[in-house]
Amino acid sequence: MNKQYSLRIHDDEARARLSRALVSFAFNIKEQDLSAATRGNARAAFGRQVAMYLSHVAFELSLSRVAHAFGRDRTTVSHACHLIEDRRDDAEFDDKLDALENLLREVQAPA
């Protein structure tokens, strides 16, 4: 594996960790539920979808990079982005995600 590629994967995984941690804090969901290999309960699944959406939107990662970082399929991430984008029609939820998105944007890329 070439070095640059493995570095990129390392960065993506770090970003995924950060976004999971943020969602875990903001939505009060256990972090190990978000990083679980199986779906888990509806709350955990929703939190994971938010985390995937945030890393796609705030870090501007492609869907397949997000999928790799979360250990999911590319289409799973696409589904999550659609779902969360629809949920953002609700103003309260939209404001909350705007705040989280801006927070993640401010973070410097891992060195």
């Binding site: 696409s78 982005c81 659609h82 984008e85 629809d86 953002r88 029609d89 939209d94």
Partner: peptide, 10 residues
């Protein structure tokens, strides 16, 4: 698609 939805919201 998801990008259009995002653009629509913005």
């Amino acid at each position: 698609n998801a990008t259009e939805k995002r653009l629509f919201r913005i």
